[in-house]
C-alpha cells in the first residue's frame, strides 16, 4: 500500500472516531498509533463500537465480519488503522 493511501485511511478513521464519539478536533488530532482505545476511552463502549465499525465500513467501502472484531483490533488507535488498511481495496 502506498503511504498516501495509508494516510488517507488514517484520516478517515480519525474523522470517523471524532464524528461517532463526538470528540473535539483537538482530541481527534491527539490520537497516536499507541493511544489506547477500547477500555481506555470512556465514550467507546460496546454500543459505540458497533456504530463506529459500521461507519468505517461505509466510508471506506469495506466489509468487516463480526468474528474479526476483537480486543486486539480495538486495543490502540494504530491497531484499528492497521486493521482498516488491511481491509481497504488497493
Amino acid at each position: 500500500m502506498l503511504p498516501d493511501d495509508y494516510d488517507q485511511i488514517d484520516s478517515t478513521v480519525r474523522a470517523t472516531l471524532r464524528d461517532v464519539l463526538g470528540l473535539s478536533e483537538a482530541r481527534a488530532a491527539e490520537l497516536r498509533a499507541e493511544t489506547p482505545l477500547f477500555g481506555a476511552m470512556p465514550e467507546l463502549d460496546s454500543m459505540a463500537v458497533a456504530g463506529l465499525l459500521t461507519e468505517i465500513e461505509e466510508r471506506l467501502g469495506i466489509l468487516i465480519e463480526d468474528d474479526e472484531v476483537d480486543g486486539e483490533m480495538l486495543e490502540t488507535y494504530g491497531s484499528l488503522v492497521r486493521f482498516a488498511a488491511a481491509k481497504a481495496p488497493r
Partner: peptide, 23 residues
Amino acid sequence: ATDPMPADRRVPGAPLWRRAEPD
C-alpha cells in the same frame, strides 16, 4: 460529504445518528 453512496447533493456535517448522546 463523508458518505460515498450516490447523492444529488453532499453537505458537510457529522452523522448525528451514530452519536450515543443525542446532539
